[in-house]
Amino acid sequence: MHMADALVSPAIGGIMLAASAGAIAYSAYKCKDDLDEKKIPLMGVMGAVIFAGQMINFTIPGTGSSGHIGGGILLAALLGPFPAFLAITAVLLIQSLFFADGGLLALGCNIWNMGFYACLLVYPLVFRPIVKKGFTPTRLTVASIVSVVLALSCGAFSVVLETLASGITELPFSTFVGMMMPIHLVIGTVEGIVTGAILVFVYKMRPEILESSLENSKLTPGVSLKKVMLSLLVFAVVLGGAISLFASANPDGLEWAMQRVAGTSELEASDSVHNAFAGIQQATAFLPDYGFKSGSEEGSAAGTSFSGLLGAGVTLLLAGGTGYLIYAVKHKKKNQPEA
């Protein structure tokens, strides 16, 4: 559900960039008190998992479309809402800058649609109440499915509103929303099942991770996350380096809906603002569409695997580095002598 720049006007793109920047700043501020330093490496590893996971589009039978995970609920359940929002922001930033997946002008929309609703709204208001009476495999699965479907539905509806506000007449509101909502309901159900399975796995290995996020508390010093992080890191490598090769070639839910409403999944905008953002992205995206720029068939599989591994690694560094930076600033201020 990554929006391209052509789907938003400069005004809406600017507003959503500002709104997402505000949410990022607030999340960073909250992390100064809420971020558990023991979870900072996990923040990086989970960023890598979500990056790799989003590369894998799964086919929606009978539709000719595909979907991929968003990952916001999974991140929030393991990290807490505010670190999760920063982690998914890192994922979307790396995708846009280096892989041309989602537009730079539309980056604020994508962060809001895929991160804000899941991490900062649905997780605290829906997921937490469902599991607050205790974690069980059934409760985790139900909470995951309900929360992911709701978060993805909010994001899909926001895409429609953002295109409407941008004056994209090729995508009339009623027809576009009629296509977007049902397909993302199906995608959300699949992602919810996957999210539930991963959370059950993590809970059985180290229940303290989910409990600390639920209670907004810090892990005790004796709790080790090494086995969980190693398992998740291996999972990210397998996803990005191997399973990504088998991703569905069908258009994702947004592109599918656009194709049926407007007759094309690639609208164009040629004003100076769009051209400027396109020029920046063209300069920074050294692996566009997760492949080598040569585009040769012989190198496509290698390009996909390389993109998956490199992108996951860079996201790990950015997401984890963000956590360490926040912790370092907090630690420095805490140790400063009072005037």
Rank of each mutant, 00 (worst) to 15 (best):
T284N: 02
I73Y: 06
V223Q: 00
E208N: 05
G323E: 12
L210D: 02
I60Q: 02
P251I: 02
M43D: 02
Y290E: 14
F173H: 14
P288Y: 03
Q336D: 10
E215D: 14
Q95F: 06
G47A: 05
A18M: 14
A52C: 10
S248W: 11
G22R: 05
F235D: 01
A249D: 11
K30F: 14
K330R: 15
D252T: 04
F286C: 12
S65F: 07
T284L: 13
L78E: 10
K132L: 08
E162Q: 08
Q281N: 08
F292P: 13
I12P: 04
A18C: 15
L185Q: 12
F246N: 15
M179Y: 12
K332G: 06
Q54L: 05
M16S: 03
L74F: 08
F116P: 05
A285T: 15
A339E: 15
A84G: 10
A28F: 06
G13V: 03
D289F: 09
P288Q: 03
S174F: 07
S27W: 07
E211W: 10
Y290Q: 04
S20Y: 07
A28E: 15
V91D: 02
V149R: 01
P83A: 09
A76N: 07
G313E: 06
A25Q: 13
A23C: 13
N335L: 08
Y117H: 11
G14F: 10
V91M: 05
A156E: 06
G80N: 03
S158V: 12
A84N: 05
F82C: 08
A249N: 14
E268I: 08
G167R: 07
F58P: 01
P221G: 04
F82N: 13
L79R: 09
D33Q: 14
E162V: 12
A242H: 14
L104V: 10
D34C: 15
G196R: 00
A283S: 06
A242R: 08
A249T: 11
D271P: 06
S166E: 03
P337R: 03
F58K: 07
S307L: 03
V194D: 01
S147V: 00
E170Q: 13
Y123A: 04
L214T: 02
C109L: 07
T264W: 04
M114A: 05
I69P: 01
T141R: 04
V146D: 00
P10L: 09
P251T: 04
S270P: 15
T284W: 06
M205T: 06
K32G: 12
Y29K: 08
A276W: 11
L287E: 04
G14K: 03
V194H: 04
G103S: 00
L107A: 14
F99N: 05
S65Y: 09
A48M: 02
A25M: 07
L287A: 08
A319T: 03
L42F: 01
S265V: 05
G103M: 01
F306A: 15
G53I: 01
G291F: 05
V142Y: 07
G320E: 01
E208R: 07
S300R: 06
V238F: 11
P41D: 02
E170A: 13
L125H: 15
V273L: 07
A301E: 14
L7G: 11
Y29H: 07
